[in-house]
């Protein structure tokens, strides 16, 4: 039986502007198992990205608890959250979000460098991962010299270098053409199937539901239990 790696209970995220309160998430409780490939889906503005940001420690919920890998992450102090992100989580964003001043190789190994890994080791690891995502020939290219699909693959390589427990991907194919998008998804599928990588994917594209193990539907900040 697979372990539960993410357990979120009664999550609430409220944005306050003056006296106006906007509920982005309302009382959401979910569990994700280790090695599971889960998609969070729902219409625009439903709160799916907000949910991913809470689970990925990029934001802090106003209420509720999140346990990741048996650790209560909501109450971690900032430096511990940063360390947790560095060591256990990986991110792939919609708009790639690579550091423009770093080459593909450097973008990938910067987090390993920060972990204190020896230079030879992190360079070799970064090179291997970039080769795995088909960018062996583009190691020393800057983001501005890469296509959107290539940049997203660099972003995946960056997310994977520290062997994260969970890979979070926020609409990773939204800015890509169909071929590049399919390529990114096939990388995710392979990672999940061959390496048992836990993946939490946010998407609003219905066909993505077919390749994941499970879909968590969100609507108006609540779990949409009418859909399975």
């Amino acid at each position: 039986m697979k372990n539960i790696i993410i357990s979120a209970k009664n999550l609430e995220r409220v944005y306050t502007t003056g006296i106006i309160k906007t509920y982005a998430l309302k009382d959401i409780s979910i569990e994700i198992k280790e090695g599971e490939f889960v998609a969070i889906m729902g219409p625009s503005g439903s709160g799916k990205s907000t949910l991913l940001h809470q689970l990925g420690l990029l934001d802090t919920p106003t209420k509720g608890s999140i346990i990741i890998d048996n650790e209560d992450v909501v109450n971690l102090i900032e430096s511990k959250r940063t360390k947790f992100r560095l060591e256990k989580l990986g991110y792939v964003f919609q708009s790639y979000n690579l550091v423009p001043e770093l080459t593909a190789l450097e973008n990938v190994y910067i987090t390993s460098m920060a972990q204190g890994m020896p230079a030879e080791e992190y360079k070799k690891k970064a090179e291997d991962i970039l080769k795995r995502v088909g960018l062996g020939e583009r190691l020393n290219h800057y983001p501005s010299e890469l296509s959107g699909g290539e940049q997203q693959r660099v972003s995946i390589a960056r997310a994977l270098i520290n062997k994260p427990k969970i890979l979070f991907a926020d609409e990773p194919t939204a800015n890509l053409d169909t071929a590049s998008g399919d390529n990114v998804l096939s990388i995710f599928k392979e990672l999940n199937e061959k390496h048992n990588q836990t993946i939490v994917l946010v998407s609003h594209e219905p066909e993505h539901a077919k390749i994941v193990d499970r879909v968590i539907w969100v609507k108006d900040g609540l779990l949409d239990k009418s859909r399975k």
Binding site: F84, L86, Y91, L98, I110, T111, A114
Partner: peptide
């Protein structure tokens, strides 16, 4: 981005 990927403040 750097902060999100776990680079210390």
């Amino acid at each position: 981005i750097l902060k999100a990927t776990g680079i210390k403040k």
